[in-house]
Design a protein around this nucleic acid. Structure first.
Length: 479
RNA sequence: GGUCCCGUAGCCGAGUGGUUAGGCAACGGAUUGCAAAUCCGUUUACCCCAGUUCGAUUCUGGGCGGGACCUCCA
C-alpha cells in the first residue's frame, strides 16, 4: 500500500516515492544542546521515530540522520547585542560552551532511550562538519550567490528565485511585520548569515572557505552540510517542528539548491507544536516541562511516549497530566490483553477454539491503511483497541493466541508505546516476602478467613503489586 | 498588519453528505467471598447564523471563540 504523507511544500498529500526504489532517506532537525530537552522537542522527535518505524514496517530500507546542534544559535537575528545561547549558558555556569553542549547531548541520548526511540543511523555534531560547511560557503561565494562583508558571509536571497516557496513568505510581508532587524551589512533584509565573526565567541574556527576570517557558522548551513554528507544532494524526507519552516528550512532550501542546482527534498514534513493545559508551553507561564520533569513525577517513558504520539503529528496536541493518566490506563488495557493471550499460547490458561488469525489480519490491514494515510496514529490506536476487544471476548486456541500476539508485536514495532510482550506470570519475579503473603492469602481464603485474606491483599498492594485471581489460581502482577 | 490551523459528547480525540470511531471517566448487570481484571448493556456530540441539498456535524459564506507562524524555539 502506498504511503501518503503531507508535504508542507506543496500543501498536499503525496505518495512517498523514494529516489532509489526500496530505500528511503530521512533527515531530521535535531536538538540544540544548550538546555534540557522538553516534551515539545520530543513530540517532534517521536513523530520522526514513528515515521521511520512505519516506513521500515512497510519494507523500505531507511537511512535516518539527525543532527546535534552544538553550535548555539544567536538569540537575536543580528550581530549587535546577539548572544549565542550556548555562550550565555557558559557565562552563567562558568563552564565552557563545549562542556555544556556535551552534557546536554548526553541528556538528550538518555531521553531517547527512555522514550524508546529507535536511534537514527547517524547523529552528527555540527562542530564536526565545519570543513563541509566551508565547501558549500566557498561555492556559494564563487557563484556570487553569497557575499562577504567585514568577515561575515551572507546568502543573497534575491539571487535565489525560489526563496519563500516553503513558507510562503515574501519580502513585502516581512517588511510589514517590522520585525526584521536592521543590519546595514545586508544587501536585502531577508539575507541570512552563512558565516559570522565575533571575537568574544568561544567556539571559533579558521575560515573553512577561501578568503574568509576566523569565526563560526551561521544557523542553517549545518543541516545542508550534514544532510549532503550522509544522504547525498537529494533526499526523500526532511522533518522538523513547525517553527523550523521559516526561516530555517527556507534557508536550507535556498543554500542547498543554489549549491547543487537540484531539488533538495522531496517531502517536507512539520510537526505541530504541542500545547500544555490548553496554551503554549513557556517558562514564564510555569507550564514548561522537560522530559526529566515528567519522569520524576513517576510516569514511565512509555507513558510519556504514548501521550506524545497518540495525536496525529499535524494536529495540535494538548498535553495534560490527565492525558498521562489516560495513557497509563490505555497501555494497561493492551498489556492485560496480551498477557492473557500469552497464557493461552503457553498453555497456562484453558484454551478454547477461537482462531484469531482472521481478526488479526483484519486489524493489521486496518492499521496499515490508516498509518499510510499520513500517519494517523489516532486511528491506528483505534484499530489496536478494536482488536483488544475482539481478543478479550474470544476463547482463543493456542495457535489463535499466537497469531494475535504476532499482531501486537507488529503494532508495538511501529508505535513502540505499549512495551514488550508481557511475561505469562510475574509471581516468581515478585519479592519473596510478597510471594509468601500470596501463599498465606491462599490459605486464608481456603479457610474462608476473609479478613486475613483482604489484609494480605492490601499489604501486597501497598508494596506495588496486585493479586489476580484466575480459575487456575492466584498470581502476582506488578501494579 | 500578513499567512495558516482548529472549534465533535464529562475529558482527550478520529471520521463521515443519510449507517456504533477509539481511549479515559461514570452508571447498571454478569463474574467474584468482597475486590481487581474481563465481558454485556447504558448515558451525554458534532460553536452560532445563513446558503446549497431530498437530507449537513460533514460542502459554501459570514460571525464568534481558541491556537500557530511571521523573532531563538520541536
Amino acid at each position: 500500500m502506498p504511503i501518503r504523507l503531507y508535504n508542507s511544500l506543496t500543501r498536499s498529500l503525496e505518495e512517498l516515492q523514494p529516489l532509489v526504489p526500496g530505500k528511503v532517506t530521512m533527515y531530521h532537525c535535531g536538538p540544540t544542546v544548550y538546555s534540557s530537552p522538553h516534551i515539545g522537542n520530543f513530540r517532534s522527535f517521536l513523530f520522526a521515530d514513528v515515521l521511520r518505524r512505519f516506513v521500515e514496517d512497510q519494507g523500505y530500507q531507511v537511512t535516518q540522520v539527525m543532527n546535534v546542534t552544538d553550535v548555539g544559535h544567536l538569540t537575536l537575528d543580528d550581530i549587535e547585542g546577539g548572544e549565542d545561547k550556548l555562550e550565555a549558558a557558559s557565562r552563567k555556569t562558568g563552564r565552557t560552551a563545549w562542556d555544556i553542549a556535551r552534557q546536554y547531548e548526553a541528556e538528550f541520548h538518555e531521553c531517547q532511550q527512555k522514550l524508546m526511540v529507535r536511534l537514527p543511523h547517524h547523529m552528527p555534531r555540527a562542530t564536526d562538519f565545519i570543513p563541509q560547511m566551508g565547501r558549500i560557503i566557498d561555492d556559494l561565494l564563487q557563484q556570487g550567490v553569497a557575499y562577504q562583508v567585514n568577515g561575515n558571509v551572507y546568502f543573497a536571497v534575491a539571487r535565489f528565485p525560489g526563496y519563500g516557496k516553503l513558507s510562503g513568505k515574501v519580502l513585502d510581508e516581512l517588511e510589514a511585520g517590522a520585525r526584521v532587524a536592521v543590519n546595514d551589512e545586508k544587501q536585502d533584509p531577508r539575507d541570512f548569515a552563512l558565516w559570522k565573526t565575533d571575537d568574544k565567541h568561544q567556539m571559533q574556527w579558521d575560515a573553512p572557505f577561501r578568503g574568509g576570517a576566523r569565526g563560526f557558522p551561521g544557523w542553517h548551513i549545518e543541516c545542508s552540510a550534514m544532510s549532503m554528507h550522509y544522504l547525498g544532494p537529494q533526499i526523500d524526507i526532511h522533518t522538523g517542528g513547525e517553527d523550523n519552516m521559516f526561516p530555517h528550512h527556507e534557508c536550507e532550501i535556498a543554500q542547498t539548491e543554489a549549491h547543487t542546482h537540484r531539488r533538495f527534498v522531496s517531502i517536507w514534513m512539520h510537526a505541530r507544536h504541542l500545547l500544555v493545559d490548553g496554551t503554549k508551553m513557556s517558562k514564564s507561564l510555569g507550564n514548561f516541562y522537560t522530559v526529566a520533569d515528567i519522569l520524576q513525577q513517576g510516569y514511565t517513558g512509555l507513558e510519556l511516549r504514548y501521550t506524545l504520539i497518540r495525536v496525529q503529528y499535524r494536529q495540535s496536541l494538548n498535553f495534560t497530566q490527565k492525558g498521562l493518566d489516560e495513557a497509563r490506563a490505555a497501555i494497561a488495557r493492551v498489556q492485560q490483553c496480551r498477557q492473557r493471550l500469552v497464557r493461552h499460547r503457553d498453555g497456562l490458561e484453558r484454551v478454547g477454539g477461537d482462531d484469531l488469525a482472521g481478526p488479526a489480519a483484519q486489524a493489521n490491514a486496518q492499521f496499515t491503511a490508516v498509518m499510510s494515510d499520513d500517519l494517523n496514529v489516532s486511528e491506528a490506536l483505534a484499530a489496536v483497541f478494536d482488536f483488544v476487544g475482539v481478543c478479550n471476548k474470544a476463547q482463543p486456541s493456542a495457535a489463535g493466541a499466537s497469531a494475535a500476539l504476532a499482531a501486537f508485536l507488529r503494532f508495538e514495532d511501529v508505535l513502540g508505546c505499549f512495551g514488550p510482550e508481557p511475561k505469562p506470570d510475574a509471581t516468581n519475579e515478585a519479592p519473596a516476602d510478597l510471594q509468601l503473603k500470596l501463599l498465606a492469602r491462599n490459605g486464608a481464603r481456603r479457610s474462608k478467613d476473609w479478613a486475613t485474606a483482604d489484609r494480605l491483599r492490601d499489604e501486597i498492594a501497598a508494596a506495588g503489586w496486585k493479586i489476580v485471581d484466575a480459575p487456575t489460581g492466584a498470581r502476582l502482577e506488578k501494579a
